[in-house]
């Protein structure tokens, strides 16, 4: 339960890992350490970033959401179909897509919190339902949208990063504020730490849990919109396995799988670590087998690092 602002120390280990990775890839490749590489890299992460934010909240209340990848694909599919087949204005299509994500989140949250079914099982079901929905609305074909949606993913002139990235970073900052500065944030941590105690204190955890899943769903929908802007097409197979990337990023960021402890900003660092790994390994042209083995090792190493990051952070806080 972080009352005082000890954020920089907490993030220190992750920033360290990030710096080591960047240095390593810069030494290995002549082309890695460049503005183009970093710009390309950050423009690829908006979808994963907002989905990792939602996942952080869900893990905080000791839940899990396996459906985010499918929900993202379905939301994107709905936006795509509304633009291409129904000729609706882009803004309306986007709102509809976000609404789809939100609804799935509310449904998952309600079913699991109200009937006390593990969210693992509920969202596993929703994973299938949303994927089926994505196939259904797209007729299992990739919908090419093109220019109308490109503005979200294209670099903003003068800055070089996309509108999607700016929005994603804004989401990270807002979500961290919500977590560390508001009642909602404190309830999330309390529910994740000891749900029974929360109930005994006279607070109904069900509605807060539904809210958390609703946010995760909405952010999955937003991720879908970002993905659309990036690809300029709605792919019914988008985001397969994305839930695992999101969980990996969040766990690298030190959020506990058993709830009650976590940080949105650190999840963002987790996303960056994964993105740097992917970009670096791709630029080196490492074989697919080594890529996977190295990625797996780095995930474990980063979490190990996290184990002694905590006591170190405390020590540094005492000194500071």
């Amino acid at each position: 339960m972080s009352k005082k602002i000890n954020l920089p120390w907490n993030s220190l280990g992750l920033i360290g890992v990030l710096i080591v990775l960047v240095l390593f890839f810069s030494l290995m490749s002549d082309y890695f350490f460049s503005t183009v590489t970093f710009r390309t890299l950050v423009n690829q992460i908006p979808a994963l970033t907002v989905i990792a934010v939602g996942m952080t909240y869900v893990l905080l209340v000791a839940g899990i959401d396996l459906s985010v990848g499918s929900v993202m694909a379905l939301s994107a599919a709905v936006v795509g179909v509304l633009i291409v087949d129904f000729n609706l204005p882009v803004v309306i299509a986007i709102v509809a897509g976000l609404f789809v994500g939100l609804s799935f989140g509310v449904a998952s949250g309600f079913v699991s919190a109200h009937w006390k079914i593990p969210s693992f099982v509920v969202t596993l079901g929703v994973l299938e339902i949303a994927r089926g929905g994505a196939y259904l609305v797209t007729s299992s074909e990739t919908k090419y949208i093109g220019d109308p949606i490109a503005f979200i993913g294209s670099p903003v002139p003068g800055i070089g990063v996309s509108a999607a990235l700016i929005m994603a970073v804004a989401v990270v900052i807002f979500a961290q504020w919500l977590l560390s500065k508001t009642v909602f944030g404190r309830y999330m941590i309390a529910i994740g730490t000891n749900e029974e105690a929360v109930r005994l204190a006279g607070i109904n955890p069900v509605k807060w849990k539904v809210a958390v899943f609703a946010i995760a769903g909405l952010l999955a929908g937003l991720g879908g919109v970002f993905q659309l802007g990036y690809l300029q097409s709605a792919d019914p197979n988008a985001g397969i396995g994305l839930e695992l990337s999101a969980i990996a990023a969040v766990v690298i960021g030190g959020t506990s799988l058993s709830g009650g402890r976590g940080s949105v900003v650190n999840s963002f660092f987790g996303v960056l670590i994964i993105a740097v790994m992917q970009t670096g390994l791709a630029q080196l042209g490492v074989s697919e087998s080594s890529k996977r083995i190295i990625t797996g090792l780095v995930i474990i190493a980063a979490v190990l690092f996290d184990q002694y990051r905590e006591p170190l952070a405390k020590k540094l806080n005492r000194i500071a």
Partner: peptide, 27 residues
């Protein structure tokens, strides 16, 4: 010189777009 990259599964469009961008970045 050759750099070979592939995507995780047949239909991971986003990853393929990313890979091409990364190759563009390496000139």
């Amino acid at each position: 010189e050759l750099i070979v990259n592939g995507i995780r599964n047949e239909s991971d469009l986003a990853q393929q777009v990313s890979l091409i961008e990364q190759m563009m970045a390496t000139q």
